[in-house]
Amino acid sequence: MMVWVDPRQMGVDQQVGLLFVLLFGVLLLATAAVTLLALRRGTDSADPRHARLLGDLRDLWVGALVFWVAWVSGPVGATLAFGIFSFLALREFITLAPTRRSDHRSLILAFFVVLPLQYVLVGSRSFDLFTVFIPVYVFLAIPVISALAGDPERFLERNAKIQWGITVCVYGLSHAPALLLLEFRRDEGRGAFLVFFLVVVVAAAQIAQELMSRWLRRRPVARHIDRSFSVRAWLAGALAAAGLGALLFWITPFEAPQALAMAFIAGGAGTLGEFVMKALKKDAGVRFWGNRASITGAVGLLDRVAPLCFAAPVFFHSVRWFFQFSG
């Protein structure tokens, strides 16, 4: 016999547990559905659409598992997991942004000093330093190291690329574990919900925008960057995120209207970030983002986390700002 327990009456740990049960349940169902569909239709695995779907599902599984491991292992584990994501994303970014030999020292600084330090700052909850470390100190340090290498050719361009990579892949993404470690006066240990909320809401915005752009068939705003991006589709994505966010308000420290607003902001920022990354890829000359064209193996992680890299800082500061006033 089923007993309906109000989730709000459970402890935080139980709630998170329930969340994971739901998450893995949905994934299990989706995987079963895809497998059954493939069996019934008799599609061979060579079908690219089917293969892509399977690939997406596998990524979701990996993502969910990482998320779970991060939660189980506490703040250290989460910080470490996102630190590794940052590392891999920055690696992809730098691979696509051709640098010169004289950038070597700057890159070493970026990968082996800036990145670990930023995550140490997150892990130790030094939120004040953590928000200014990269925009203020690293902003100066990188060009200084570069200038010391004594190569003036395309100086601004090279430095801008490295700075951008650090800002997106390290600074942006490090806000996700920072959410996990935010402390609220009312509820302890609810950070995991905020990260989950952010990820789900951003994903919903992406999916809704993709579907709407197919259905609406509007004239793209910037056809040379993205054939499917239109203002309406973007708005639809952000609104879908808002709707889902409002439905999920019970897992966050917000009330329903606040959750709606926060989800709108996060979802909208995420899809805009994805749009910007598309422009960047076009600039880097990666037209076809399929596996075949991936000469350097830069296939994927940056693509998957880019929306999060842009949405996380916006969301983080919205949350902080909000609770400073109403906490």
Binding site: F87, I108, G297
Partner: peptide, 8 residues
């Protein structure tokens, strides 16, 4: 010190 860049 090597810098992380993808190789094939």
């Amino acid at each position: 010190v090597p810098v992380p860049i993808l190789c094939t």
